[in-house]
């Protein structure tokens, strides 16, 4: 059996807040195979975003091991993590977070600035990514000239333009109406199923389970449940709560 793309073993994350320790994640263990569309769900403060930050190498665990795309992230420095993210991770945020002074095309080009591609190659790849999300005709528009749904599609194009192994989406539909939210979820599903990208998404949207292969449910920093989504592929074998319970 092939190595899972993501493997968390007994991962904890503790923050200091004043004199107190805040246990954002406690002894979480899980694995995610390549090409799955996965949702992290749970109430506010359950540790979803913390888990997302750990998977994407934005944060480091207080304990346990985080291995993504064959790399153990615990040991990497800030700059090593940044370099690793630029190669392996595509990020999508709730509020799109495009650079307002750059056009859609330039926003999508941003992650490619960190590569060795020349300008012509960068722009060609950025245009292709915009075409993938159906915004090729809006390439010259700045974010303020785009709707919320369009901005999020630009953000998706920015996330996929480097052809990352893993796409991380933090409540990508949280700021969209139902119609645009469905478009975004469909797009993420297509990225996963047609382009074989692994997509991990934090969401509060209960309908998300209809779109994903697998759902991890967290509460108070603990992985409470794992179950298959409605879009689950045949090979997906949901792991029960035991996989995420404290070791």
């Amino acid at each position: 059996m092939a190595e899972p793309l993501i493997s968390l073993r007994d991962v904890s994350r503790v923050y200091r807040r004043g004199a107190d320790d805040v246990h954002a994640l406690e002894h979480v263990s899980l694995t995610i195979e390549s090409g799955l569309f996965v949702a992290l769900m749970g109430p506010s403060g359950s540790g979803k975003s913390t888990l997302l930050n750990l998977l994407s190498g934005i944060d480091r665990p207080s304990g346990g091991d985080v291995v993504v795309a064959g790399k153990r992230l615990n040991d990497l420095s800030e700059d090593e993590l940044a370099h690793w993210r630029s190669r392996h991770i595509g990020l999508i945020f709730q509020f799109y977070n495009l650079i307002p002074v750059l056009s859609a095309l330039e926003n999508v080009e941003l992650p490619l600035l960190l590569t060795s591609f020349d300008r012509r190659e960068r722009l060609q790849r950025a245009r292709t990514a915009l075409d993938v999300v159906g915004l090729g005709a809006r390439a010259r528009h700045v974010p303020s000239e785009l709707s919320g749904g369009e901005q999020q599609r630009v953000a998706i194009a920015r996330a996929i333009v480097t052809d990352p192994d893993l796409i991380i989406a933090d409540e990508p539909t949280g700021d969209l109406d139902a119609k645009n939210a469905d478009q975004i979820l469909r797009m993420l599903l297509e990225l996963s199923h047609e382009l074989q990208k692994t997509v991990v998404m934090v969401t509060h949207d209960p309908r998300a389970s209809e779109w994903v292969d697998l759902v991890f449910h967290l509460e108070k920093g603990i992985l409470k449940d794992t179950f298959a989504g409605a879009a689950g592929k045949d090979h997906v074998e949901p792991r029960g709560p035991a996989a995420g319970t404290p070791a």
Partner: peptide, 14 residues
């Protein structure tokens, strides 16, 4: 916010 996003998508501190 933008600096955080740039850092998140892989822009190094340098």
């Amino acid at each position: 916010r933008e600096i955080a996003v740039l850092r998140a998508i892989g822009f190094s501190r340098g």
